[in-house]
């Protein structure tokens, strides 16, 4: 019983982290039909911005929750101007886009490794701190940074949902996901909307990077190792759909935490995520909430 309750808590933490990363990935896919393999390494960049602030400059980690989203958003917007927009204008096809994303992912990952080295590092925080009342009342472990992940993710994603549903920018993003040409013909400044989509995607994954750095630790393949799991979340929920990404993140997180109890081998967590993704792709490629349109 305790084992199951603990698994629920772990799933919530993991799902909240995945969701922050997955929503940005799926927004970029929806708006640009681009599978951004560099998304994971953007997460790593966010984690190292936290490392620079917290460890190298000895400042409070709280600053990183602002700085990392800004830096990663700036990087993402930079890739739009330097890489993606020229590639679209050149009329690039699918394989070209995939390989460009891979090239960018490699470049970013090894640039990070060049600057910060290949070792595992920790923030100078007490990440063994647990929430006392959860321990006393239920005899369960909920780390302080786990709770922070859940809360930040919840607040931020509610904000993103409001942005998408209520604002002109968010509606423009959804319009681009539906039909870029029609959006352009309706007067939407599509270039500007795309830039904002990158900024949002980068900011979310940058934030996820700091939280991953705090709850896991910091190393150059941190984001890459999470990337396939994040793809799994996005695909299971329905690629291109922000709510799908959110739902998919918790589906994957819960499946991982509970099935791993069945398999009885923690090391197969990631594999469980992949297997579920492959099964969903075979049975229902548009995912739980996705539209057929997005996958054609």
């Amino acid at each position: 019983m305790d084992e199951l309750a603990q698994a629920v808590l772990n799933s919530l933490t993991a799902g909240s982290l995945y969701a922050l990363a997955a929503v940005g990935l799926t927004l970029v896919y929806g708006v640009l039909r681009l599978t951004n393999f560099a998304h994971g390494d953007m997460l790593t960049l966010g984690a190292y911005v936290g490392y620079a602030i917290n460890v190298q400059w000895n400042l409070p980690l709280a600053l990183a929750f602002v700085a990392a989203p800004v830096v990663v958003a700036a990087f993402a917007v930079g890739t739009e101007y330097v890489v993606w927009r020229p590639l679209r204008r050149a009329g690039a096809g699918l394989l070209q886009k995939l390989l460009m994303a891979i090239g960018l992912a490699l470049f970013l990952r090894y640039a990070i490794q060049f600057v910060w080295g290949g070792d595992r590092d920790f923030y100078e925080i007490d990440n063994t701190a647990t929430i006392a009342w959860v321990r006393d009342a239920f005899d369960l472990t909920l780390g302080f940074y786990d709770l922070l992940t859940i809360v930040i993710s919840l607040v931020v994603l509610v904000g993103v949902a409001l942005l998408l549903a209520r604002t002109l920018l968010g509606t423009s993003m959804r319009a681009l996901s539906d039909d870029v040409d029609l959006a352009e013909s309706s007067g939407v400044d599509t270039d500007r909307t795309v830039v904002w989509t990158w900024a949002l995607s980068g900011a979310l994954v940058g934030l996820a990077g700091v939280l991953a750095g705090a709850t896991i630790n910091v190393y150059p393949t941190l984001g890459w190792d999470l990337l396939l799991t994040i793809f799994a979340c996005v695909i299971v929920g329905g690629i291109g759909s922000a709510y799908g990404a959110l739902l998919g993140s918790y589906v994957i997180a819960f499946s991982q935490e509970f099935l791993v109890l069945v398999v009885d081998d923690q090391r197969y967590k990631t594999t469980i995520g992949f297997v579920i993704m492959v099964l969903v792709l075979l049975v229902r490629p548009q995912g739980i909430l996705g539209s057929k349109r997005a996958v054609n």
């Binding site: 992912a105 470049f107 090894y110």
Partner: peptide, 14 residues
């Protein structure tokens, strides 16, 4: 070395 590989891939693709 691998930064160069990544960059080379990007430049060729572009």
């Amino acid at each position: 070395r691998y930064m160069v590989v990544g960059l080379a891939l990007m430049l060729i693709v572009r």
